[in-house]
Computed example of a mutant assay.
Amino acid sequence: MTAPTAAEVARAIDHTLLKPEATHADVAALVAEAVELGTYSVCVSPSMLPVAVPAGSDLKVAAVCGFPSGKHTSTVKATEAAESVARGADEIDMVIDIGAAREGRFDAVQADIAAVRAAAPAPTVLKVIIESAALSDEEIVGACRAAEAAGADFVKTSTGFHPAGGASEHAVRLMAQTVPTLQVKASGGVRTLEQAQAMMAAGATRLGVSGSRALLGGAAPGGSGY
């Protein structure tokens, strides 16, 4: 299979800014860069909403929920998701209770996701962050099945903030094979065009990237980030 071109990779990118020190000026610059690069969306913190998208642009806006720990109650996550949608978010990227998955309490994981799904129904796109680097393969499978049962649209590897690490080709492949009815978003540590292409070859249809310009331009990205 031919590797996706840089332009095709760009259309799979959620151009992301989730640093706690981010300002509204930073978000405006993010949007301008996303339009220039041709990314699918921007992904921001809920407090940065609403985001002004240029007239005529098809750029989508995603907001995170329960970020980054996932240790918020389901009621709090549902309220956060509903408010983000009301403030213009097209997509919600929620974090599960990772500890519940590690304990094998997948009914609780499913209920948590279902609460957010109910608060942000279709056509809002719901992506479920499972923090795959912190889970065993068995736990990844269980979390993905819980997301599917709760009505999610995507399963997503990582927040990009967990010390265990970010996306891996193995996790993406396992996620795609476990829930073929859902899409997979690879995020966390995707910093080069080659890494992005590898994630897409493994089954990712969306990518979370903060250093999109460097990735698409083939330059070495600087600093740390999503």
Rank of each mutant, 00 (worst) to 15 (best):
L207H: 01
M94E: 03
I98T: 03
A171T: 13
T75N: 09
I92L: 03
A86H: 07
L174T: 13
G56W: 06
D58A: 14
T181Q: 11
R117A: 04
L193N: 11
L174P: 12
V61Q: 10
T39R: 02
Y40K: 07
G218H: 13
A143K: 05
H72I: 01
A120K: 00
A186F: 06
I98F: 01
A164C: 14
C144Q: 13
S136N: 07
Q195E: 15
V209Q: 09
G70P: 02
K156W: 01
L182I: 03
S41K: 04
Q183A: 10
E33S: 15
E21D: 12
G218Y: 11
V116N: 02
T16L: 07
K71T: 11
R11A: 15
R191F: 08
S57Q: 00
A118H: 05
A86Q: 15
T16G: 04
G225I: 00
A198Y: 04
T192W: 11
G99P: 11
D26V: 07
R191G: 12
A111S: 13
A214P: 06
A10I: 11
Y40I: 03
H15K: 11
D107K: 03
M1H: 09
T75H: 06
E8I: 14
G166N: 10
C65T: 04
T16Q: 03
V179R: 00
A133P: 07
Q183D: 12
A32P: 02
A3Y: 10
V51W: 03
S168M: 11
A214T: 06
A220G: 10
K77Q: 08
A52F: 00
G203E: 03
R11D: 09
E131P: 09
E8D: 14
P20D: 14
V85T: 14
M48W: 01
G189Q: 15
K185F: 10
R11Y: 07
A201L: 02
D26W: 07
A219K: 11
F67I: 10
H15F: 10
F161R: 08
G188N: 03
